[in-house]
Amino acid sequence: MSIITDHDVRYVAALARIHLKEEEVGQLQNDLEKIIGYINKLKELDVSAVEPTSHALSLENVFRPDEVKPSLAHDKALAIAIEQRDGAFKVPKVIE
């Protein structure tokens, strides 16, 4: 009853930028199986008369006016940068 394959686990881990040890792959495969199994159980419910919801709060139309608020001071904004150059965050090169 393998719904989640070994490949699925590695793919999801790659998308989430999680590095897995070999033994963790099998463990997670089991965990994900259980979660998906639970979702499948929920799917047995008839919800055809229920409106889909995208949000748990019964709130709507929370807006702000188009008014400028102070931004962070430049040095404060860059304080979290591991490396910086010319006022910018420096990261490993992403394009060849």
Partner: peptide
């Protein structure tokens, strides 16, 4: 061309020094 960004009150302008119109 709103005064501020989509989801925060930082100024929406072109040509400022890098990382000066930023917030959490």
């Amino acid at each position: 061309s709103t005064q501020t960004k989509m989801f925060c009150g930082c100024r929406n302008v072109f040509g400022s020094a890098p990382n000066t119109n930023v917030c959490p």
